[in-house]
Design a protein around this nucleic acid. Structure first.
Lengths: 339, 339
DNA sequence: AGATCAAACGAAAACGGTTTCGTGTTAATA
DNA sequence: TATTAACACGAAACCGTTTTCGTTTGATCT
């Protein structure tokens, strides 16, 4: 086991000072050709690599960015991470991922762990519990300390920071319009509770599209499922109680789950009833029939978040201007709607 | 913007030395009650939190663990990360995730970035390119430096370190046996190239089950698809050319994709043909019909990996004994096989 | 009163780098 | 020949902790 070699080791071995070694390895003009070559050769030979921690301490820069998300076993978040990684790595940054598991407390703990020097900035999406409690003090504390934060997807206006979202309202609007354009009149919406910022916006888009087309919004056609877990019964009852010819769901799972129930009732998709979901994941691609969805462009979202964060981290000036980048969702048409 | 407060700040403000502050905050017996109370109160008031980087430098321990995986947009890896996070966080560790994207070079670069002090140990699954090239020098260098490594799922025997895998051969064996037990005789295998350690083991399990039941292994019934991308044609041709009554696939996507093609040919599942896949992900649960699969228990795998790594990191003794933990796969029976 | 000891605190080294500011040597200039 | 400037290098401070090893002070003992 050969331990890592340090500047001090090189200095001792070559009988020069530590400063000389440091400068030589940075190719400083201060050091003579001879000395530089000797030191560089020695460093190469012993595979010297500077200690990141020491550099971090000196520079007060870790080149780490903290990503705090509610869950990772979700296609959307997974693509966002991928986008973040892609941009961050290219810029020489590492990504520390923490999961809040939709819990407010875990979100707070994770942020506190990271905020004490481990990272240069945060990229986050709020846990559902946080959005429910509307308690954003942990975020405010961090920003007040001068640590840059970028919020994506599940955001809040209570915190002054950069934000990246897709236009969820527009997404739902486009999807609903599409269904209306295909002659659907009794369009249901299956969503989560309104405290999730994204669900709220999607519901608004749905309503907007309907009223624009002079279709009245029948509240009984809106099903709100609490949390991510859905039970067969509530969805089943919903379809028994309401006659619908199209359904917009706020995620993939609601969509495939509902489709299955409807198919079991003997309806055929998309002839009798159309479905549109959110998130362009594996499920959408491989469901039977494949899903028409509102694509959220998670990877792009991740890249942009990383870019905004790193820009802030590396910018000298302390200007306190924050931007909100709104991405356009796109409709990916597959077989769960009439072509 | 209130900047972080340091020991030095407290010392200056309270007119004591830095050492006194440090000891007082650790409740050292060396410091008098009065002084401790004064310092602790002050620290609380100004919300003092020690700087992680400084502590890391001092202790030569970062409390970070590096996770290098081939991809993140895969249910299996995603569950492993979750397991790692769960255990690591409970132990006060953070998780730095790096993606190799199945590329050898990226794997090497990521490891080098992290190996210079950023982490206390690695948890990894090899990229396909690495397994193809059979070049493990980057791993060997790291272990030689005394940095603990735990390899999971896609492993190699070339490197001395702890390993966690599921018994892939057994998984395939059980699945194949199950199909045979249901009277299937012409069982196909859809897999990837053999350089992936897991695919190789699965193929062996498949062969073993067949020969044990005196069914001869018809090589034409084994389809090897290169990489993760499959094309409709090669799979279609395969089913045209071979009459099969059951299929074992090495992942979810191959399974649903093949099922679709077979369904389009007018066969019904599981009456005419059965399917079993690997990985118990969302696709399996929501496919139509839902998939019978070999569950890999990714979360458990992650937890065990994290545990093995942290044990090594925190163990004082330098004993060089490595263990390989083999998890038992289980068959999750759903609707793509006869019940 | 002088020696001894414990209590309470501070100085300084250490972790591994970077960087500023000397300083000694040599060569060019007046 | 005395002055000066450039060159090549080293000393030391610094980043924020921890920790060892003094040192001071007052009390106790003889």
């Amino acid at each position: 086991m050969k331990a890592k070699i340090t500047l001090k080791d090189i200095a001792r071995e070559l009988e020069v000072s530590i400063s000389t070694v440091s400068k030589a390895l940075k190719n400083s003009e201060e050091i003579s050709r001879d000395t530089k070559e000797k030191i560089q050769a020695f460093a190469k030979l012993y595979n010297y690599k500077p200690n990141n921690i020491a550099i971090s301490l000196k520079n007060k820069r870790t080149k780490n960015i903290g990503v705090v998300i509610p869950a990772i076993v979700h296609h959307f978040f997974t693509t966002v991470i991928r986008g973040i990684e892609k941009y961050a790595n290219a810029k020489g940054y590492n990504v520390i991922v923490c999961l809040s598991e939709e819990s407010f407390d875990k979100e707070v703990i994770n942020m506190e762990m990271l905020a004490n020097g481990s990272i240069d900035g945060f990229i986050m999406s709020l846990s559902s519990e946080t959005q429910q409690k509307e308690d954003y003090n942990h975020l405010k504390e961090v920003t007040e300390q001068g640590i840059p934060v970028v919020l994506f997807d599940r955001i809040t206006n209570e915190v002054d920071c950069d934000k990246v979202i897709i236009d969820d309202q527009l997404g739902a609007y486009l999807a609903t319009k599409k269904l209306i354009g295909q002659g659907r009149k009794k369009i249901a919406l299956i969503t989560t509770d309104d405290y999730l910022s994204v669900s709220k916006a999607r519901t608004e888009g749905y309503r907007k599209a309907l009223s624009e087309s002079d279709l009245d919004v029948d509240e009984s056609r809106i099903l709100k499922l609490s949390s991510m877990e859905m039970d067969e019964k509530s969805i089943g009852d919903f379809f028994d109680a309401n006659e619908v010819d199209a359904v917009l769901c706020v995620n993939e799972i609601f969509t495939v789950f509902s489709m299955r129930l409807v198919q079991e009732k003997g309806l055929s998709i998309p002839e009798d009833i159309s479905f549109i979901g959110f998130t362009d994941g594996l499920l959408s691609k491989y469901a039977n029939p494949s899903l028409t969805v509102v694509a959220q462009h998670g990877e792009k979202m991740g890249e942009i978040s990383a870019q905004m964060l790193i820009d802030k981290v590396e910018s000298e000036n302390e200007e306190e201007t924050f931007h909100t980048k709104i991405l356009e969702p796109t409709l990916v048409v597959r077989d769960s709607t009439i072509n």
